[in-house]
Structures are given as C-alpha cells and as structure tokens.
C-alpha cells in the first residue's frame, strides 16, 4: 500500500520535494500539496484501491500525511502491508 500511495503522490501531488525524501508522517501540505492537487490524489487513490471516500472523510486532515492516508484507507477496509 505504501508504494502505491507514494506513486500516486508522485504522479498527482505536484509536490515540491521528491516523494522518496518524505517521511511517512511528513506534512504533505508543507511539502507543497495544494487543494486542487489533493482532489486529484484523492481521485487516483479511489481508482487504484477501488474505494470511495465517504463525505465524512473528505477533510484536509485525511490527506495531510502518508500515515493519515493509510489510516483512512484502513478504515475503508483496504488491507495493506
């Protein structure tokens, strides 16, 4: 799951730093994730993991770090290592 999240961030996050340099708990907004890009990240995550984020999870906090994204996906029963 980690690798897929990082790939999606690299493809759609338009971050200012290489994704490989980011710690799992690094603040993605501080790393340059803007609001339009975060929508694209969300859509790509939904497509890749075949899930739909419910309205209650569509908050800035859900996408603020790789750890937060993993926790959100876990809540949607996406199993990963």
């Amino acid at each position: 799951m980690d690798e897929a999240i990082r790939r999606i961030l690299a493809d759609h996050g338009r971050l200012a730093v290489p994704v490989a340099d980011l710690a799992d708990d690094a603040d993605l907004y501080r790393a340059g994730l803007a609001s339009h890009a975060s929508v694209n990240v969300m859509l790509a995550l939904e497509d890749h993991f075949d899930v739909e984020f419910p309205e209650g999870m569509l908050r800035k906090q859900t996408f603020e770090s790789i750890v937060a994204i993993k926790a959100a996906l876990a809540q949607l029963d996406v199993v990963g290592s």
């Binding site: 971050l15 200012a16 730093v17 907004y29 501080r30 790393a31 340059g32 994730l33 803007a34």
Partner: peptide
C-alpha cells in the same frame, strides 16, 4: 512563503 526554501503553497 514560510521560508526561503518553502514550496509556493506553504
């Protein structure tokens, strides 16, 4: 920007 090395959205 927060600091000289911050991305444009920070």
């Amino acid at each position: 920007r927060r600091a000289a090395d911050s991305p444009s959205s920070d």
